[in-house]
Amino acid sequence: MMSREWRTLDSQLLQQISGLQEAAPVRLSSIAKALDVKVISTTLPKGVSGEIRPDPDRPGSYIVRVNRNDSSRRQRFTVAHEIGHYLLHRDQIGDGITDDVLYRSTLSDSREAQANRIAADLLMPKNLMDEWIENAKVLKVDDVVGFLADKFNVSEAAMKIRLGVS
């Protein structure tokens, strides 16, 4: 259930991130801190969900800015998406990547899709998904998508995509 992009990451990096994905909802702040990526919630122009840029105060480090006007679940996915760019496309960030509400940027659609898949891997890791799907069965949950979306603090749309349901 983990993406092909996830499987291309360095094994030490995967181990570091996986160690921070021990409970749902995954604490993105811990992952960002471990990667030395600063996350700031701020007001961004209308239609912009987030951006990642080099941190001018910390050479070699990056800042993710997320639109404070978006819902908290949207902000979580945006942060994970921008971390995805950091993990996969750091050499292409240049002066920065700004993503609109549809997670489109100046990068190709394929790179945006890659960042979305890594975002899903970060927020909804396979081991925790398996655990909570089983818990939903034991608890005889009627609305599994809603239950899991609440548990992982993601949108129902993101959870449906992760589960492969329409």
Rank of each mutant, 00 (worst) to 15 (best):
M1P: 07
M1A: 12
M2D: 04
S3T: 07
S3V: 05
S3Q: 04
R4E: 07
R4M: 10
W6M: 01
R7W: 09
T8A: 04
D10L: 01
D10S: 08
S11E: 13
S11R: 09
S11V: 10
Q12R: 05
L14H: 07
Q16P: 06
L20P: 01
Q21E: 02
Q21M: 10
E22S: 14
A23V: 08
A24C: 08
A24W: 02
A24E: 01
A24M: 02
L28D: 01
S30Q: 15
S30A: 15
I31M: 06
I31P: 00
A32F: 01
A34G: 09
V37D: 00
V37F: 00
K38G: 12
K38I: 03
K38E: 13
I40M: 12
T42G: 11
T43W: 01
L44E: 02
P45V: 03
P45A: 02
K46D: 11
G47P: 10
S49D: 11
G50P: 01
P54V: 14
D57N: 15
D57H: 04
P59F: 09
I63Q: 11
R65T: 00
V66C: 03
V66D: 03
N67C: 05
R68Q: 11
R68V: 07
N69Y: 13
N69R: 14
S71F: 05
S71A: 09
S72M: 11
S72P: 10
S72Q: 14
R73G: 01
R74E: 15
Q75M: 05
R76A: 15
R76S: 12
R76W: 11
F77N: 03
A80T: 00
H81T: 00
H81I: 00
E82V: 11
E82H: 06
I83Y: 03
G84F: 09
Y86V: 06
H89R: 08
H89P: 06
D95V: 15
G96D: 02
I97H: 02
T98S: 15
T98V: 13
D99N: 11
D99C: 15
D99R: 14
L102K: 10
R104C: 05
L107C: 04
S108L: 09
D109M: 15
D109Y: 13
S110L: 12
E112L: 06
E112R: 07
A113Y: 13
A113P: 10
Q114Y: 07
A115S: 10
R117C: 04
D121R: 07
D121Q: 05
L122V: 09
L122P: 01
L123D: 03
M124C: 12
P125G: 02
P125A: 02
P125R: 04
K126Q: 12
N127Y: 04
L128M: 00
L128F: 00
M129T: 15
W132C: 10
W132T: 14
W132N: 14
W132G: 14
I133N: 07
I133G: 05
E134Y: 12
N135Y: 13
L139V: 14
K140F: 15
D142Y: 11
D142L: 13
G146D: 01
F147E: 03
F147Q: 01
K151A: 12
N153A: 12
V154P: 01
V154D: 09
S155H: 04
M159T: 04
K160N: 07
K160M: 06
I161F: 15
V165H: 08
V165W: 08
S166N: 11
